[in-house]
Computed example of a mutant assay.
Amino acid sequence: MVRSDLAGPEAVGRQALARLAVPTRGRDAVDLTAAVSEWLAAIGAADGLVTLFLRHTSASLTIQENTDPDVLADLFGLLDRFAPADRDYRHAMEGADDMPAHAKAVLTGVSLAVPVVGGRADLGTWQAIYLLEHRTRPHRREVTLHYLGR
């Protein structure tokens, strides 16, 4: 069923941009949901779309389960099987985890688009927005946030 009250010509009336600095501790999932929610509230978002874009090639963004930490642990395990660190990669400029991190970012992506309804990201009950750090050492990652709506 389509809810027509969520769209219309007046739905796209303004934009907002911000850059979120995200420190990582090395290979881990960093929950960005609260930071995105705080930013949407601060700009007075109503209904629209928030796009997140990660400005890096060895980390990624995903929407995943936010309740059972085993989901994220299993996800990292699967990514390790798809792109193991012990392969003989040509690109290893920054260490053995360099090319596997790039491959994992390709598999999971660097951008997300999330509907905003009533000023809140329209995530499901068990969903959260995560930055996945694929490198083993800590980094400072940057996520550009772009809101388009009313």
Rank of each mutant, 00 (worst) to 15 (best):
S37K: 06
D28K: 10
G149P: 05
D80S: 07
V117W: 14
S60W: 08
V114T: 00
L75K: 05
A16Y: 06
G44Q: 07
G124D: 01
D47V: 12
T33K: 00
Q127T: 06
D28M: 12
T24F: 10
T144H: 10
P138Y: 01
R81Q: 15
Y147F: 12
D80M: 05
Q127N: 02
A41W: 03
V36E: 00
R90I: 12
R140N: 12
L6M: 15
V2M: 09
T108Q: 10
V2H: 06
A35R: 13
Y147T: 00
Y147G: 01
F76W: 13
P69Q: 04
A92M: 08
R19E: 09
A46R: 14
A83V: 06
P138K: 02
D31Y: 01
A7P: 15
N66M: 09
L6H: 12
T51H: 06
D31T: 01
L6V: 04
A34R: 07
T108M: 14
Q15H: 14
T24I: 06
L17V: 11
G95W: 00
V143G: 00
A128K: 04
A92P: 05
L52S: 11
A42Q: 04
Q15E: 11
S4T: 10
V110G: 08
D28F: 11
L132M: 08
V71A: 03
D98G: 04
V110E: 13
M93G: 15
